[in-house]
Write a protein that binds this DNA or RNA. Structure first.
Lengths: 254, 254
DNA sequence: CAACTCCTTCACAAATCGATAAACAAACGT
DNA sequence: ACGTTTGTTTATCGATTTGTGAAGGAGTTG
């Protein structure tokens, strides 16, 4: 099955390879360059650290066995100030090494020999994992309730809700922290703004109005719960409702 | 023998395993529990999705090959709204599968057979990556009792407790010092505040109300013990219950 | 300007919580 | 064994918190 586009490889990343084997570096450099990335190579740990400090790569491929300085040492050192992901790379397949590598702060570990495509996939996954830190989802879904923030719209099972601005802000504030209790102060900060101070009872009123909109639907009244003495909690489960139980048995093997 | 010494549940995470092989789940559950994690098991994709929605695990171990729904589908679905890391797990060693898994949003990929220690190291690395900025223990677990502070929620064996604010404060104060005796003065400082002075008997009353909630469950009444002349002691062992009883799914089925 | 929406404020009802008291039971020291 | 101290349980009442409805004003749109 072919996917249309792959946004992760659409952009180019700066990759630093710290590896002393010239054959491997050549292969890696070639393959990664073909992916559109910008590759820098350092052939020993000290040089790698220097290059990392000056170029700030998006990801580092780090050989475990290096001349002079052990790869683990390099990793530990880099981790102190660099938050780019580090992918350990080694000929050793012993699990102690894998574990030691991960313990020391590596984010992934690949043993040679490896398949280039897998390495690339892991690189992309690592970058995606560290880069896409909270893109602030535009669409919040919880069961039958769907809120599209950019459109300022909220739907409950195909029925459009009429939410006033304040109500809307409070709802998405609650949904963003789904499951957790939001104090009135927190909700006020979200819906009114940082410095603005109003009567906290206003929150109650708006919550009531939201509830009124959700009423009539199954479980609608339970979506926003009151936690006495603390605040309110959106207790719906995030994500769309799972597919029906029966239906298709797909992809089943064995 | 293990005493209830360490209130640091920072290393205890909620792990959901979506895997249909009972042998493997048993092994995993045992090993992960020994690490101090709280393990939930779902035996097929749909159940896994449901459990993930309701329990919000910190990390998910997902088998690629599942009955009814393909693991990739599950992964893609979860990724839409869940930001917890997903570790793919499969018997397939083909690189296409690894790549496909990573493309679909998995954060790591381990092929069977694998070494348990490596898996655990990868789990820890994943968790460290994603919630490195959360050293504060939000979830206190002691056997069947689980308290999530930010959600202001307490569950006893999947049954939700109704705890008033004071009761809640006293409970978590006791749990934080699990095994140690808390004097009434200490508990009052935690639940009422530094300067406030009230009749120490209030503590008695609230402890009784907590006990009333825990009643009916096995060992529930023994969780909070009275130390005559001194105060109260939370005597449950922190950390999840051993999975000794069954190898079956403990996830809900509603 | 008129109609409308939205926000705030208020008053009252309902629900919940917490402090106190008091009666009862258990544990302890002598 | 006895009385004293400490803990348990229940009840009650006032205080606090929250739900509800409505009114009025500010702001916006046509």
């Amino acid at each position: 099955m072919q996917l249309t586009t792959n946004p992760t490889t659409a952009t180019s990343y700066r990759i630093l390879i710290i590896e002393d084997d010239p054959t491997l570096t050549t292969t890696l450099r070639y393959s990664l360059h073909k992916q559109g990335h910008h590759v820098t190579v350092a052939s020993d740990g000290l040089e790698g650290i220097k290059v990392a400090r000056s170029t700030r790569p998006d990801i580092i491929l780090l050989d475990l066995m290096l001349p002079n300085i052990d790869g683990r040492e390099v990793c530990r050192y880099l981790r102190g100030w660099l938050d780019s992901p580090i992918l350990m790379l080694t000929a050793l397949g012993r699990e102690e090494d894998v574990i030691a590598g991960l313990e020391v702060g590596a984010d992934d570990y690949v043993t040679k020999p490896f398949r280039m495509n897998e390495l690339i996939a892991r690189i992309n996954a690592l970058i995606r994992r560290t880069r896409s830190q909270k893109p602030e989802a535009d669409t919040l879904i919880a069961g039958d309730l769907m809120v599209r923030i950019s459109e300022h719209r909220a739907m409950f099972a195909d029925r459009e809700l009429r939410l006033a601005p304040k109500e809307f802000q409070i709802l998405i504030a609650l949904m963003r922290r789904a499951g957790k209790v939001c104090t009135r102060a927190e909700l006020m900060k979200e819906a009114w703004g940082e410095g603005i101070v109003v009567d906290p009872r206003n929150v109650d009123v708006h919550v009531r109005l939201i509830r009124a909109q959700l009423e009539g639907e199954p479980d609608g009244s339970w979506l926003i719960q009151t936690v006495h003495g603390v605040g309110y909690r959106f207790s719906g489960e995030l994500g769309p409702n799972p597919p029906a139980e029966d239906a298709n048995a797909e992809g089943n093997t064995n």
